[in-house]
Design a protein around this nucleic acid. Structure first.
Length: 309
DNA sequence: TCCCAGGGCATCA
DNA sequence: TGATGCCATGGG
């Protein structure tokens, strides 16, 4: 059987190498596997889990179904997911022009040229990830995420490896706090997660519902009205999942470290300097934050873990 | 051993 | 409205 392949045209600056580097950086994300020139992940379809390779040919991104022949509907869903995940429809030219106006960070345009904003199209996954990641270090957060996915997520085997899809809200809505505690969720995080899963499950919370709200202010207000979702989580989830270009996870520890590293702020509570800096990137704030996070993996910044202000 | 980590909530002044 | 303490545990 010949594998089904679908090409997605990629315009403008795009670097598969940079995107793969980000996807594989230092952490262990259980939702995909990164190989030398490609990323492989599972996608839910009506007939099971499809395993798909994603790699770059000269001017197009190729999706290759490895274990099944997909339906037209499956193809459409995966193309949409990948376009969203790897932010294929953004032209980085203007962003790089704005970067060039600030000598402290202008190097990023060359250093990370073609790096796209890696999103999280599944809004439930994004919010779950936020709850998990609150106030714990990232490597531990990824461990907990893996435990959650392996405990509650569906998977298929391909080439000796397991490929998971993220647990459904319906499944997690019925999880017990004690079960989540055994995965090393804190009591509160377990409560938050179950509450959010129930909201998704009964339809009182969804990506579509949020997209239907009139403006950003309303979306943030709606989200922060839910227990466990504060300003950081609301902004992070809107940025990663709904691709709100102006959303910034204010107070984010990594962002503040990056700003100090680049001497953009002297102390982490310097809100005036942060506002002033961000103002000049209007419309590209989330890309800016994403690139600043990227800098945290640079050796010169990694060895310079900062003391709090 | 100490301090921080891609925070949020309850309480209090 | 802002400050403080607490949650919870791995990692440097």
């Amino acid at each position: 059987m010949k594998n089904k392949m679908v090409e997605i045209p990629v315009s403008g600056l795009f670097s598969m190498e940079e995107c793969l580097w980000f996807l594989s950086r230092d952490f262990d994300d259980c939702m995909y596997k990164v190989y030398e020139d490609r990323v492989r992940r599972g996608f839910k379809s009506s007939s099971g889990i499809m395993v798909v390779d994603i790699y770059l040919m000269p001017d197009e991104l190729v999706l290759e179904w490895l274990n099944v022949l997909p339906s037209a509907q499956d193809i459409k869903a995966v193309v949409e997911f990948v376009s969203d995940w790897l932010d294929l429809n953004t032209d980085l030219t203007l962003f790089y022009k704005i970067l060039a106006t600030d000598k402290r960070i202008s190097y990023m345009a060359k250093e990370y040229s073609g790096l796209r904003f890696i999103g999280m199209p599944d809004f439930f996954e994004a919010l779950t990830w936020c709850i998990i990641g609150q106030q714990i270090n990232l490597s531990f957060a990824y461990k907990i995420k893996r435990r959650l996915v392996e405990q509650y997520g569906e998977f298929t085997f391909y080439d000796g490896q397991k490929y998971y899809v993220f647990p459904t809200a319906e499944r997690l809505a019925h999880a017990n706090i004690s079960d989540l505690r055994s995965l090393q969720f804190s009591e509160k995080k377990a409560q938050y997660l179950i509450t959010i899963a129930q909201a998704f499950s009964n339809g009182t919370l969804s990506k579509e519902l949020l997209q239907g709200l009139p403006d950003l202010e309303n979306r943030i207000k709606f989200l922060t009205g839910i227990r466990g979702i504060g300003r950081w989580t609301a902004n992070y989830a809107l940025m990663k999942s709904l691709k709100e270009p102006t959303c910034i996870p204010y107070g984010d520890a990594g962002l503040l470290n990056a700003l100090v590293n680049h001497k953009i702020i002297k102390t982490k509570d310097d809100k005036v300097a942060i506002e002033r800096f961000l103002k000049s990137f209007a419309g590209w704030e989330s890309y800016l934050v994403f690139y600043l996070w990227r800098t945290l993996s640079q050796p010169k910044f990694r060895s310079n873990q900062l003391r709090p202000s």
